[in-house]
Design a protein around this nucleic acid. Structure first.
Lengths: 146, 146
DNA sequence: CCGCCTGGTTTCTGTTGGTGACCAAGTCAG
DNA sequence: CTGACTTGGTCACCAACAGAAACCAGGCGG
């Protein structure tokens, strides 16, 4: 597995990582993606990054999550030490979630992503429209019905 | 990766931004996550971030991708203007992929995530082990066979 | 003509996510 | 006491999707 693609800057120590083999099944980046790379985790972390929140509020604010998936995702994040769950046996039980310091550090990266999305998604949309348009033109030139 | 163009009819947001409602269905952060929030996109962008690469090399280096998913994900990234595809009709056709400047900016955030993963995933693993251990203890105390 | 190379697409099947019904525990109205 | 309603969560079921493997295009070498 040689690397003819000029990796240039910094070949990191050992085989550890980055830019070297992000892809190996056991690699930390892969592990992270396996955990928070689902449909809801990032959204939850981003929301909790602004302050603790109750289960029902999370459900209300994240447009489209099902109760099942919210529970499941929160449980998974809790297991990974990224969110903290506190259940108070009040009248109807009250469960509060908040991010842990560990997740707090990750939050910086997630927010950077969010900022990119906010400033660049329009460009993505434009690229998409252009792509689809070209594909449509090709389809017209070479119709599918063989 | 669906192909609906959810640029949406403009409107409904007075919401623009972050910290406010990351959750609304049409929000840019949601759109971004819908696109690159899958199992392979981030990995591909990270790899291509180090330099252009051929299809077969990507497949070889990303441990576990199926040909179908690689093609599908690359096509989606191309559609979104994040990667550039160049097919040269050489002997056996040669297809090269590289990231676009647009994706280049996103790369900073992704690399930050990767770095977090590399330094913190061990803590996550520890948290996980602890959680599972406690759950096991509880299961022993209150066996399932009601 | 056979077999092989790259880059795909198709088919089939197992896993995943979403929907909606249901549960626990407690409170309050009637 | 009964029934309705709260919050947080589980379960059964079904549709959508990812993965494995087979197949395809077409150009070449033997």
């Amino acid at each position: 597995m040689q690397d003819d693609t000029l990796i240039s800057p910094g070949h990191l120590e050992g085989t550890r990582n980055g830019r070297g083999n992000v892809y190996a099944r056991g690699c930390s980046t892969r592990q992270l993606l396996d955990r928070i790379g689902d449909k809801w985790s990032v959204l939850i972390l981003l929301l909790l990054g602004d302050g603790e929140m109750r289960f029902s509020e999370l459900k209300r604010r994240i447009d489209g999550v099902s109760q099942k998936m919210l529970t499941q995702t929160l449980r998974s994040l809790e297991r990974d030490g990224l969110v903290d769950r506190e259940a108070v046996p009040t009248v109807p039980v009250t469960v509060t979630y908040r991010i842990t310091p560990l997740a707090g550090e990750l939050l910086a990266a997630l927010r950077l992503m969010m900022e990119w999305a906010e400033t660049r998604m329009s460009a993505v949309a434009a690229a998409q429209a252009k792509f689809d348009e070209q594909r449509a033109a090709v389809d017209q030139t070479y119709p599918i019905g063989q």
